[in-house]
Nucleic acid binder design. Structure first.
Lengths: 177, 177
DNA sequence: GAGGACATGCTCAAGTTTGAGTACAAATTT
DNA sequence: AAATTTGTACTCAAACTTGAGCATGTCCTC
């Protein structure tokens, strides 16, 4: 499974044994569906795989009921080394919008400016929603520092908006594309 | 195949028929491996699939040699509607670093500050490299506006760096996590 | 106490992604 | 000119992802 799925599952289990559905719920509570992509089917796959690898163990299994998994020492180890890895590694942000950008020369100027204006509005809207979410009460049970995800997201969207406005100017002046 | 792979292939073929390997080369030339993820295995799959769907047609095929694909009118149509979609749609940026962030409370303060300092340095380095790339001569054959990908990337990394510095302050003052 | 709506908990087949590996050609070295 | 390296072009099996769908429980409502 993807490395993010893996560490997210391990991280959730750090606080105690859970079954698959509960892992999913925990992740949804954290809003992980917004900034990661953890299809719930992958959670069950991940749990089984990591149990196979010895990072997890089945605590309460089988007989038609739920399968509860607990993290092992090897699992905790793996969690920590991956976590460090994530802090040090800069992976270029992969954003489908970069693809739109690549083909900006395939739209004629009025179309392009229209698209840019549209995107700017969308970005403003997203930023507003993020700010509202930040102002609102914490989701019950989610740790406080989860807000940092929103703050970072917000900073990055604002950067995109600034870039976009500047680029619109250059398109208008014929500098781009 | 993923939507990005699809539009990237179509976009490359817009300029004329090519075979799989040449599509790959074109994408590498554009630096697409940095800001998208197009495993080259997926290119061949994508070409075959889209030929099946009528978006491409085989121009020069079989007999052990290369298979050359050309874009059809349906393909051009599909390309344009997807391109518009990308301009309008804000997908939250999915960055594995957000995962590291989620678990910041699992490191003790000295470890965390160390990790943050490390990341800040990495970010500075990445920014420097991007700036160098922007200053350098254009890769032969890549369109000029490809630079915008780098500019946007750079703006977003800088936003992350600013956020990180501010968050370090809050960690030092005990406000986080 | 029957019927329905919703939550819980998971399975599995169909599809997608991956990159090591294959095969041959061209260029370079020895 | 044989041998080796590098480049071109692709295949394919193994692994992963996905979400519709199933089975069961729980709570309401009439």
């Amino acid at each position: 499974m993807s490395s993010s799925t893996r560490i997210l599952i391990l991280g959730v289990l750090l606080d105690g044994p859970l079954h698959g559905y509960e892992v999913r719920r925990r992740l949804e509570l954290w809003g992980a569906d917004n900034w990661a992509n953890v299809a719930f089917g992958s959670i069950y796959h991940g749990l089984a795989k990591m149990a196979d690898e010895g990072l997890l163990e089945v605590v309460e299994g089988g007989r038609g009921g739920k399968t509860v998994y607990a993290i092992t020492d090897a699992g905790r180890q793996d969690f920590h080394s991956r976590l460090f890895g994530y802090w040090w590694e800069i992976k270029p942000i992969v954003d489908p919008f970069q693809v739109a950008l690549t083909f900006m020369d395939r739209l004629d100027r009025p179309q392009l400016l229209d698209a840019m204006r549209g995107r700017a509005e969308q970005l403003e809207l997203s930023l507003k929603m993020l700010e509202r979410a930040l102002g609102a009460k914490q989701a019950y049970g989610a740790p406080r520092h989860i807000d940092e995800n929103l703050r970072l997201q917000s900073a990055q969207l604002r950067a995109q908006l600034d870039w976009l406005r500047e680029a619109m100017g250059r398109v208008e002046s014929g500098d781009l594309p």
